[in-house]
């Protein structure tokens, strides 16, 4: 467990850098976490972030497939927005826990 300050707020992080408490998250924090991952957030990024946080709020499992069907972005576009391991990077920026989905 580590502590880090994003956007003036000190938060608890897991060993892998995910926020422990998703309620501490705000958009300014997202911008700073994104910068650490070499991503500059756009409106499209925020639309995905909102979708992910909403899904988690409802207790649903996050899958890449669901994002592809969200109407916000297709799967290819999702990989372009959050390069590398998109679901992991996107959840990290969204202040959510590490995804446990296999699809």
């Amino acid at each position: 467990m580590a502590q880090k300050t994003y956007a003036g707020v000190t938060v608890e992080l897991t060993d892998e850098g995910y926020l422990v408490d998703k309620n501490q998250w705000n958009k300014e924090m997202a911008v700073e976490i994104a910068q650490e991952n070499d991503i500059t957030l756009t409106a499209k990024h925020f639309a995905v972030i909102e979708f992910l946080r909403d899904k988690v709020e409802k207790g649903e499992t996050l899958t890449i497939r669901a994002i592809g069907k969200s109407g916000i972005v297709d799967i290819k576009g999702f990989y372009e927005l959050f390069p590398g391991a998109p679901l992991k990077v996107a959840t990290k920026i969204s202040g959510l826990s590490k995804p446990v989905s296999c699809v």
Binding site: I64, R65, G68, I75, K76, P86
Partner: peptide, 17 residues
């Protein structure tokens, strides 16, 4: 369980590179 069909799976794999 949100497991895609085979054709959809193939698309997901190539969409991600």
């Amino acid at each position: 369980l949100d497991i895609p069909t085979i054709p959809e799976f193939l698309e997901m794999i190539t969409a991600g590179g």
